[in-house]
Amino acid sequence: MTVPANTSEVASSNVDIIMRKFSDTLRSFDLKTAVYPFLGIVIFLFFWNVAASRIDTSLGQFPGPAQVYQQSVTLIEEHLAEQLKAEAFYERQEKRNAKKLAKNPDAKIKVRKYTGKETFLDQIFTSLKTVLFGFFIASAIAIPLGIICGLSDAVYKGMNPLIQIFKPVSPLAWLPLITMVVSALYVSEDPYFEKSFLNSAFTVALCCLWPTLINTAVGVANVDKDLLNVSRVIQLSALTHVRKIILPASVPMIFTGLRLSLATGWMVLIAAEMLSQNPGLGKFVWDEFQNGSSNSLSRIMVAVVVIGLIGFALDRIILMAQRFVSWDKQAVLR
């Protein structure tokens, strides 16, 4: 072997090593999870910007990404300003009460709540509380009921017509009825929950019920027959049977139902808040629409994006819960 050939071989192997390391780092940087979503968003923003600049409404130009970002900053600033006001109010109240007590220790002091305008962030918080409350009520009813429906053919056949009839009803149709029933039955001097909160929550619960109920029932009814036979041979008690066989086997279907439920619940809540003027993001959107200032459309668009982000986050949270609960850690969850 000649010397020059040898050196070139060494050189090429060095290049090889560098190239391999380079391609390794490229490969370890997962293109699909990082770059593609980013690209998708950038392309969307571009088209949004182009389209928005061409739409003129009676409330001014349709907001592009820049205006929406600006309004989101303004909304947070407004919230902070409102918080300062509230703090100042409570401070004044405290001082006033302290003075009163100093003059006369037996004086009746009044502690009033600050009743300032509800800011965007307050509305987000209200909506989140409402949807989660409604969702938990619905799940607490739908999962046990679904298990019973899945286990017993008779119960399923009895329930099925009711499920099929009530499932397609828009919960908004229930809203007036719920409002009247809540105000008739929930009579309390010092209510723990606001009536408007209960109205929205029950409306959400009514539409969260069906996907969970149906998916749970289907999941339970389709548990592998051999596994059921094992349980029969062992003569497991009904409770152990549900706990050790039925529940783990139907976890994926139950969670599919829960995710569908929460997604529809969140959608319906916004509509219900708009319709009934119950506090929440829906009311914020409606108020801004009625307000009709030049910033309104941008502020509504902020709400639209936030509603979407929250819906996405809620779905991810349930997915995380499923990962935590599910026995099948290999399953690809989407």
Partner: peptide, 19 residues
């Protein structure tokens, strides 16, 4: 009625995948 005195070995092994 089924019972553990006549336990069955199933063709599909029928092990609980979560246990």
């Amino acid at each position: 009625a089924p019972g553990p005195d006549r336990a069955v070995v199933f063709q599909s092994h029928a092990l609980m995948p979560w246990l």
